[in-house]
Structure formats: C-alpha cells, structure tokens
Amino acid sequence: MTARAWLRLVIVGGRISYRALFNWTSPLMYIPTLLVSPLLGTLFFAYLGRYAGGRDDTFYVLGNGLLAVAGPCVFGGMMALANERRYQTLGAVLGTPAPRGAILVGRAVPYVGNGLFTAVVVTTLAALMLRVSIRIADVPGLLLAALAAAASCTAFGLALGAIGMRVRDVWVISNTVWVSLWLVSGANVARSALPDWLEVVGGLLPISHGIDAARAIAGGSPAAGLIAREVALGAAWAAIATLLFRTFERSGRRHAALDRG
C-alpha cells in the first residue's frame, strides 16, 4: 500500500467510519450530551465550590472544560470499534488487506478533533458565564493541553472498544469509567486530596495530567512536562489498544468470533 492510500484510509476512511459508527452525530444528540451536560456540570461544581468555600472558579472551569473531552473521546473511541459488533461488520473489515494501524488512526482522528472542540466550547461558555478571564497568551498552551487530553482519552476509549470487539457488555465499564473521571481526574477535587490509591488511578487514566497542565498554564508555571506526561500516557494507551485489537483479531479467527453480534 502506498503512503497516499494509507493517508486516504486515515482521512477519508476515518471520516466515513465516524459517521458509520458514532451514535451521537445528530445535533439533537450531540448538543445535549456532549456540550450542555458538561457545561451544567461545570456550573454545578463551580457554584458548589463558591457555596462550600472550595477553590476559585478558574479551577472548575479549566478542570471541567478539559473533562468535557471524556464524552466524545471515551465513548466515541469505544463506539469506533465496539459498534462493529452491532452491525456485524467486523468480519467484512478484518477480511480486507487494510493496514490495521491506518484503520485505528483513522478512527481516532475524528474523536480527537471532537474532543478538542467540546473542550473549547465548554471552557469558553463556562468562562463567560462565570466571568472567569483567560489570558490570550495562555490560549495556545491551553489548546495544546486539551489536544493532549483528547488524544490520550481517545486512545483509552479505543482500548475499551477493542475489548468490546470480544465482550458484549463493555458499555457498563465505560459508564463507570466516565463517572469515576469526575472524581479521579482532579477536575473537581484536587488529586492530592484523594486517598493514595485513587490518586494513582487518576494518574493512570487520561485527562488528569492535561488538567494539571491547564491549571499550571493559567497559574503562570511551566506546563511542558505535564503535557508531555499526558502525551506519554496516551501513547501507552494507544499501544494497549493496538495490542488488544491484534489479540482479539487473532483469537477471533481462531474461535470463529468475527461475525458474532
């Protein structure tokens, strides 16, 4: 396969597969689920923080703004693979000679973009509503932190989705993970305030280092190391996703599981 065909599979193929497999493409699903809910969440925690004497509004706006990537990225990444089962298309896709790397990257890209978009929208709207000011100079850094969080979160979602190629009920896991991110990512509670083991779990899941980075940027401290950590974590999750995908592809051929619904 030529480099050009590889790229086409990522870009053109990725775009088509997004429409094929993402359940929330229609505005009627997209806006309430991916934009309004996280925005309300941000307001909820910010007002709770004001009432209970917690952190300042910036803490919640940046935390929840980045946490907004979880919707499109965790669930989207999952749907990108696990929904093949719903349509029983796995046998058709895996019977093609297409390089698996390009399939996976192509499926990831739209959700990374989506995650970045939701983070920007939620952060901006929440900042406007709560009158939190963000310095123009900080914007590139914040965008970079959000991009890193979206990428690692998508890799994590793909890993869950790969499990979904084999296990029918992965959606239970994803719901649990999503809710637990509210706690362990540090979006609403500083991770240092959590019990040690939860702090560790939060550090291994995506988004937490991205949130740390965003807050560091707003506070004027260096954030490159934190962003690098989020990226490294994303790379690790991408490796796990690829490994799981390959493993289930192989065992699917052995156990006749490629066309199960």
Partner: peptide
C-alpha cells in the same frame, strides 16, 4: 447484517474502497 446501517449504500462502498485501497 454486515453493512453500516447508518450510512448510504454509496458510503458503504466508499469505505470499503478505501479499505481495499481502490485507486481514487
């Protein structure tokens, strides 16, 4: 089964054309 229900027939074919690296 075995088709992407949410896509048109055309887009189903387009996706598989990419997977088989059919000359664009």
């Amino acid at each position: 089964r075995g088709l992407y229900d949410r896509l048109s027939g055309l887009d189903n074919l387009r996706y598989f054309a990419e997977l088989y690296a059919v000359d664009p």
